[in-house]
Computed example of a mutant assay.
Amino acid sequence: MTTDDTARALGSVGRGALRLTLYLLLTLLLIPVQGVAVGLRSPLSRRLPILYHRLCARLLGLELVVRGERMGSGPVLFVSNHSSYLDITVLGALLPASFVAKSEVAGWPFFGLLAKLSRTVFVERRARSSVGRQRDDIGDRLEAGDSLILFPEGTSSDGNRTLPFKSALFAVASRRIGDQPLTVQPISVTPTRLDGIPMGVAFRPFYAWYGDMDLAPHLWQVFQLGGMTVEVEFHPPVTIDGFPNRKALADHCQRSIAQGVACAVSGRPAQ
């Protein structure tokens, strides 16, 4: 890897400015369209976010390498590791599903509005007294036929490992849709290359947003970067019927996802 290769991968101001301009134009154009679609409860409100995320992924230079088979029929509770806001774009481009997010996101400037327009389910993860209501909110969406995406780590990681899963929200997996148990599908999301250069520990923070990182500088760096390869692995789906309790289900999903991340990070074939 030469100095020029590294400089190209780490980006350019011109590329960043162009991408940011196109992103804002695309987003501002589609916000009112999605707002009307959500207000009218149109099927377009489910389809438009997928198109939006696919366009954003292309705009940001994200190459998505997909392994495994996604469940084709819903409702499904997809569970994934989480290292960056870019995971929203990656999974949003691949899944006809809404996200489950912490309640603080609803109050974020600009991105909170985008989350609401994407029909995100907001939960207060620290309030034990509201767990039942949150479980019901999630369950109602699933029973209505909507698939959801859950990040059970509760926070974002550095992308090199998978944190332990919080099992509380897996309680919704005990619901039956009709007479069938809810399908749960684990997904591993791992950034692996930057402009063809293996990311490794040094480059992965250009994708991962975690800890006390400031959002605006990190986002500006992302707009400037060269193309990034992100590997997405769909693991075999499961149901609560195969486990003694929700914690065992959460542990199984965590192990499957952690193994997928470890294989992608090391370059080993998936098990």
Rank of each mutant, 00 (worst) to 15 (best):
247 K>W: 10
63 E>Q: 13
217 P>G: 04
233 E>C: 15
215 L>R: 00
72 G>T: 06
18 L>E: 10
97 A>L: 02
128 R>S: 08
264 A>E: 02
262 A>S: 12
137 D>N: 15
46 R>G: 00
255 R>D: 10
53 H>M: 15
84 S>V: 04
35 G>P: 06
148 L>R: 12
245 N>S: 12
63 E>R: 15
261 V>Y: 04
225 L>T: 03
41 R>Y: 02
178 G>W: 00
47 R>C: 08
9 A>T: 00
138 I>E: 01
142 L>M: 05
79 V>R: 00
172 V>H: 03
17 A>V: 15
225 L>S: 02
131 V>C: 09
188 S>N: 13
65 V>Q: 12
127 A>P: 05
134 Q>G: 11
181 P>W: 09
268 R>F: 13
178 G>F: 00
12 S>Q: 08
43 P>S: 11
223 F>S: 02
70 R>I: 11
209 W>F: 07
60 L>D: 00
256 S>D: 03
9 A>M: 03
107 G>W: 11
243 F>H: 12
162 T>D: 01
40 L>R: 14
176 R>G: 04
103 S>F: 04
61 G>A: 04
124 E>M: 10
130 S>G: 13
126 R>Y: 11
172 V>C: 07
1 M>E: 13
22 L>N: 09
45 S>I: 10
207 Y>C: 01
249 L>R: 13
182 L>I: 02
128 R>T: 08
162 T>K: 05
152 P>I: 07
120 T>V: 15
54 R>M: 11
58 R>V: 04
198 P>G: 02
183 T>F: 10
137 D>A: 12
15 R>H: 11
37 A>K: 07
4 D>P: 04
55 L>M: 13
68 G>E: 02
157 S>C: 04
216 A>E: 07
136 D>Y: 10
180 Q>L: 05
66 V>I: 10
203 F>K: 12
56 C>F: 04
191 P>F: 08
88 I>H: 03
232 V>P: 06
30 L>N: 12
73 S>P: 02
199 M>W: 00
228 M>L: 14
37 A>E: 01
141 R>F: 14
151 F>W: 11
7 A>E: 12
207 Y>H: 09
27 T>R: 03
55 L>S: 04
103 S>L: 14
251 D>V: 12
118 S>V: 04
101 A>G: 05
187 I>D: 00
161 R>H: 13
149 I>R: 09
75 P>V: 08
228 M>F: 13
216 A>Y: 09
41 R>S: 06
199 M>N: 03
45 S>Y: 03
129 S>L: 09
266 S>M: 01
237 P>G: 05
248 A>T: 08
163 L>F: 08
256 S>C: 14
269 P>Y: 08
139 G>F: 06
11 G>H: 04
